[in-house]
């Protein structure tokens, strides 16, 4: 693969990644949201793989494969099982409606582009154009965590943030040392599992996973 084509390919994949995060925000049902997350992670894995192969950074290839296996297959699978077990209603409940969150998301992309232009915040070594994309992914995750009512959407939001940070790491510094990365992957997996259990517990305690009910905890 020649370099220019590879760069174009990563650009394309990067935009698809943004689309996938929009899809996550726009999906009215929890299943679609999980599938969107899987897609998002798939594109992330693809970007990592392309960068790994063009820059000959072998350990990134491992990260790519791990991303593919863990985030596009295992974690979504776990989530689908949680939904099935809990019998959660499929509709996502949100404080703001979908068109409005899309509008906010567009604004957030603007903001992330605006604050990172001219390398004001970060000084990248390569592929600086991915920084706004990564920052906006983090923003989207935060938007999801702040506006959704169900605990499970908040876990998805957290995972989205993690994806954004991972993207930033990969595109800026070609990834962290392999050992650290593998550690992070296990963290994510474990976090996913723990939170899955957590969601069970919340439901056990409150008969719902609506985090609004946790306001009852304040004395």
């Amino acid at each position: 693969m020649t370099d220019s084509i590879a760069v174009s390919l990563t650009h394309f994949l990067g935009m698809m990644l943004v689309i996938a995060s929009f899809w996550m925000l726009a999906s009215p049902q929890i299943g679609a949201c999980i599938r969107a997350y899987a897609t998002h992670s798939f594109f992330l894995a693809a970007i990592t793989a392309v960068i790994a192969s063009t820059n000959h950074v072998e350990h990134l290839m491992v990260s790519a494969v791990l991303t593919l296996v863990l985030k596009t297959i295992v974690i979504p699978h776990v989530f689908f099982r949680i939904i099935l077990r809990l019998g959660i209603r499929k509709e996502i409940e949100s404080y703001i409606n979908i068109p409005f969150s899309l509008l906010l998301a567009v604004l957030l992309v603007f903001v992330s582009f605006y604050v990172t232009r001219e390398g004001k915040i970060l000084n990248p070594v390569s592929l600086g154009e991915f920084i706004p994309l990564a920052v906006s992914t983090v923003f989207f995750g935060m938007l999801m965590m702040t506006t959704r009512k169900k605990a499970i959407s908040q876990v998805l939001g957290l995972l989205l943030i993690e994806n954004g940070l991972f993207l930033m790491g990969v595109t800026m510094t070609f990834g962290m040392p392999l050992l650290v990365e593998i550690g992070i992957f296990f963290d994510v997996l474990v976090a996913g599992l723990i939170m899955g259990i957590f969601v069970f517990k919340i439901r056990g305690a409150f008969e719902s996973i609506n985090v609004d009910d946790m306001t009852a905890l304040k004395g």
């Binding site: 990067g14 992309v109 582009f113 154009e129 706004p132």
Partner: peptide, 11 residues
């Protein structure tokens, strides 16, 4: 369409 435009600005 907006993302298509934004993508150009970013990339």
């Amino acid at each position: 369409a907006i993302l298509s435009l934004l993508g150009q600005l970013i990339i």
